[in-house]
Design a protein around this nucleic acid. Structure first.
Lengths: 193, 193
DNA sequence: GAATTCATGTAACTTGTTACATGATTTA
DNA sequence: TAAATCATGTAACAAGTTACATGAATTC
């Protein structure tokens, strides 16, 4: 449900192609709601069928033609209705497959676990850097109204806090695993069955 | 992919029904990977077709019969293979629909936004309390080996940190929205269409 | 010469959600 | 007497992933 309205919302700023939307997504909304290119193209088709957007082809030379989507009046109304009606239960779920593996950590070789946690930290640091860069660019740019920049900044803040929490957790976890396995005699429950 | 292996993993502790699995899920893995009852029953069927679990009916009086699932040798091997082979990119994505709405916060009445953020805080506090309770019960119980309790504790830690980060963020955001809207003249970009 | 960027999608598949159906027992 | 708990699922649908296909221009 969310993706369609997120696309509609981005298109209220200006008409764009599916490719543009994907690019913007990856730099912003992606940090708390991801979407693949094929999903975006498919949902744009749905939005067009529903009369929420229209499209026109812009021919280009040396590059593939562009298909530019524009929000209709109906689409703008639908977006405003969606964004202003919060569901009774605010939807927000973590989907950390990595944590499912940690849950079953007793079946994993502690050395490998620590290695994966270190990798996790690097990935989260990368994410953090990415958000910070986007944030700085946004702060310097003058092509967006202050109010948009303000709210985009709030979501970036949440992204940073989530990454920092994950990094802190992983660092503590590594230390705790080291301590725990040090005082653990031998058998870890790790069987080769 | 993950859900099937999470179920398989839980079943390696002891044979259980779909209902049992759903109950355990809601108290533990649910905090970072959610699943509905119908999905669990469906995936149990798949696991059985794949030969990873077997089932038998236990008749009961006054209550519906139980269908108890047991992991096979093949299933245990499949689980061990899954849990020990981390994907090249560690999968962990937030899916916070709420943040998508905040991203478009300029289209929302600031008073309503603040109200929803306060609600968000209450929901996160509820989650936090829930995790803490589960954690305490786990600490006191003596029916699980120390090593399992240790790793379950690590995942609970991450859940707590995530909730705390969200609460902190929402509190700061409320203050920032109040400041921002105070110094903002009138028009918010909030249109009635 | 290989990879990346630009630009579009389709098809097949897997995963996740929602609504529905059944029905006795127990607790509030 | 209304609800929650125990216990199972099916059916229909919506959302998300993966692999594939095309092809010129540009950058490494």
């Amino acid at each position: 449900m969310s993706l369609k309205f997120a696309l509609l919302g981005l298109l209220t700023y200006q008409p764009m192609t599916g490719y543009d939307l994907k690019t913007i997504f990856d730099e912003s909304i992606n940090h708390f709601w991801s979407a693949s290119a094929s999903q975006i193209y498919r949902d744009l088709g749905t939005l067009e069928n529903e009369g929420f957007v229209t499209s026109h082809i812009e021919p280009q030379e040396g590059r593939p033609d562009k298909k530019v989507y524009t929000v209709t009046g109906l689409g703008e109304k639908a977006f405003m209705a969606w964004v202003n009606h919060f569901p009774p239960q605010l939807q927000c779920a973590m989907r950390y497959e990595f944590l499912v593996r940690i849950f079953f950590g007793s079946r994993i070789d502690p050395q490998d676990l620590i290695f994966q946690l270190q990798k996790f930290i690097r990935e989260q640091q990368e994410d953090l850097r990415h958000i910070k860069t986007a944030e700085e660019e946004l702060g310097q740019s003058e092509e967006y109204p202050e109010i948009e920049k303000f709210y985009w900044g709030l979501t970036a803040s949440m992204g940073k806090k989530a990454s920092l929490a994950a990094i802190e957790w992983a660092e503590e976890s590594i230390r705790e695993i080291q301590e725990f396995t040090a005082k653990q005699p031998e058998s870890t429950g790790l069987g080769k069955n």
